[in-house]
Design a protein around this nucleic acid. Sequence first.
DNA 1: AATCATACTCAAACCGCTTTGGATGCCGCA
DNA 2: TGCGGCATCCAAAGCGGTTTGAGTATGATT
Lengths: 343, 343
Amino acid sequence: MNLKELATKLGLSPTTVSRALNGYPEVNEATRERVMAAAKRHNYRPNTRAIRLATGRALAIGHVIPLATRHEIMNPIFADFIAGAGETYSRNGYDMLLSVVPDEEEEQAYRDLKSRGSADGVILHAPRMNDPRIPLMHEIGIPFVVHGRATDTALPYSWVDVNNRRAFQRATEFLLDLGHARIGLVNGLEFMDFAIRRRTGYADAHAARGLPLDPALMSSDEMTEISGFRAASAMLDLPDPPTAFLVASMISGMGVRRAIEGRGLTMGRDISVIIHDDDLSYLKNGDDVPIFTATRSSVREAGRIAAEMLLAIITQHGSEPQNRLLEAELIIGQSTGPAPRRA
Amino acid sequence: MNLKELATKLGLSPTTVSRALNGYPEVNEATRERVMAAAKRHNYRPNTRAIRLATGRALAIGHVIPLATRHEIMNPIFADFIAGAGETYSRNGYDMLLSVVPDEEEEQAYRDLKSRGSADGVILHAPRMNDPRIPLMHEIGIPFVVHGRATDTALPYSWVDVNNRRAFQRATEFLLDLGHARIGLVNGLEFMDFAIRRRTGYADAHAARGLPLDPALMSSDEMTEISGFRAASAMLDLPDPPTAFLVASMISGMGVRRAIEGRGLTMGRDISVIIHDDDLSYLKNGDDVPIFTATRSSVREAGRIAAEMLLAIITQHGSEPQNRLLEAELIIGQSTGPAPRRA
DNA sequence: AATCATACTCAAACCGCTTTGGATGCCGCA
DNA sequence: TGCGGCATCCAAAGCGGTTTGAGTATGATT
C-alpha cells in the first residue's frame, strides 16, 4: 500500500494525501480525518526510502566503530551508550546506523556516510588528545557530537562529557580525608582523554595538599579484570604499598579486589577501593548496598543527552556548538574505610 | 557530484555511466575504464538513498533491541555479536540498523522495518522457548536468522547457535572425571533457550552416570557478578556443599570466585570452577594462561556467521532454512583440579 | 550487396514520496 | 456586478539512481 494507491482509493491526489498525513494546513479538516482513517485502516506506512530521497534527509545517525587492535571502543560502555542514544533516536523517528570497519578505513567510513548521504549526523566515541576526527568532521561538513572531550583541539565542537577530573579529585580527597596517604591509581589507557582528566584530578588533589606523586602508584592500561589485577598486585608488592586504590572501571575494580583478597586482605578494612561506575545495566555495583564506593555517572544517560543534542543541532542547523558537563555522584559503598593504623 | 553530472562531464548518458560502474557487460571496456577513472577523480559516490529507492532494496539489516526491564539483551554478549555481524555487513556494502525500542513496541518495530522498507532482513537475538517472534517474522515475510534456537517452535527458521548442551555436558563430565561428585550449576535465566540447553547438558551428564540431580545445587538468575556470588554463597553454605561449579558466564564466574575466596578457599584446589567464555574482546579469560577452565565459543564469530547466512538468504531468496551449530572448545585453565579428599 | 548478429549507447520510464506553482470554487466587499 | 482573497485541491516536476526497450554503427555472413 503506497501513497498513490491510497490516494486513488480515496479519490484524492497524492499531494493532498501527503499533506493531510504530514499535518500541512492547506487541507480541509474533514478531508484530513478521512485520510488519516483510511491510512490507519489500510495500515499505510510511507516508504522510508522514498521519503529519504525526496527530502534529502537520511533520517539516520551514524556511529562508526573501528575494530582491530584497540579494543577500547566496542566495549561494555559503548553498548550502554548506544542503548541510551538509540532510545532517543527511535522516539524521534531516526534510525541508528552502525558502521563496524577496520581501523584503517575509519576515515573513509565517515566520508562515505556523508557523500552517500546515509546519515544526517554522527556521534564520535572515545576521543583522544587532539583527535583527528574533529578536523575531519569539519572538513566533511557533517553535524556531530563528541561523547567526551578532546584535549588540545583547536576547532569548536559539541560534546557531552562527565567531569572526570572533578570526580577523581573528589574521590582522592575522600580517601585522603580517611587518612590514606598512599593511594594507587589504576587508570585506563592514558591516550584516552577521559583517562588523562582522571589522572589530573588525582594529581590535583595531591597537589592541593602538598603531597608528592609516586610514579610507582600510578598505572595505566586497558580496563580489564586482568590488568586491574596486575596493576594492584604490583603495587601491593611494593615495600611501601598503598592503602587505597582509585580504579577506572568496575571491571578493573574486580581485578583489584582479587589482588587484595588474594593476599588475605579485606577490602574496605585493610585496603580501600573507589571505582568509577558507568552504571551499566548488566554490571550493577550491588543493588541495595553498593559493593564499591564509586564515582557514578550513567553512560546510558549520556547517550540520551548526546543524541538529543545532535538531533537539535541537525534540525536548527547552523547553531553554536553546544556542550554538557555531567557531574558524577560519589556513592559510598563497602569498599572504603579509614586508613589502617601503621603496624 | 551525481550520476548525471558525471555523465555530462564524460559526454555519456547516465545509463552508460551507471552500467559502466556497476560492471554490466554491455559497455565497452575502454569506456568503462574512462568512467571508472573519472568517478575516482571526482570522488563520486552514488547516493545510497537513490539506489535504495530505485532498486527497492534497503541494503540494511535490522537488529531490534527491546529495552526496559529485561536487561538480558543489551549486554556484553550483544556488543561483541554486533561487532562480528557489523564487520560482515560493511564488507558487503550493507548497513546495520539498530532499533532500540520499549518492550511493548517490539512487534511494531519489526513490522515497521518491513512496511517502511528500511531493512532487507533481521537478526533475532536471545530467543526463548517458543519465541513469538518467529511466527511474527513469517507473517511479516522478512528474511531472518536467529542467534540461538527457540525450542518448541513449529515453524522452520535459520539459526546459528553454540552447542550449549554438549558444551555443558562435556564440562560436567570433565568435573565428574576429576572426582567431583557434587557440582553446582550457576545458570542464566532459564526461560532463555541457551540456559535450558545448558541445564540439559548438565543433567544428561549426571544421568549418564546414574547420578541424581540435587535441586539445591541448581540455580538460575541473570548473569551478573552479584547473582553469581549469591548463588555460589548459598550453595557453599549447604551442609553438603559442592566441590565444583559450572557457571554460565565470565561475569557470574567472577562472583562465584569471590564467594569461594571469601571463604578462604582456593579456586582450583579446594573448589573447581568451569565457566562459559564467550570470548569477549574486553573480558578476556587471561591472556596466555586462562584463569578459568572454560567452554569457549566466540560470540563475535557467531555474529559473522549469522550475518553471512542472512545475506546469503537475502540474495538467493527462497532458499531452504539454513543452520549452523558451533561446537565450544573446552579450555583448561587454573580453576579446576581433582576433587579434594573428604576431610 | 543485402542481411544479420553483435557491440555499444541512449532516451525515457520508474521507484514512492515531497513540493512547487498553479487551478478552482466560493465568499465577502466595494 | 466584478474582483481580490481564502480555502482546497491537484498536476507535474523533482530527488538520484536503475532498468527497459530501442537505436546505431560495425563487422561478419551469405
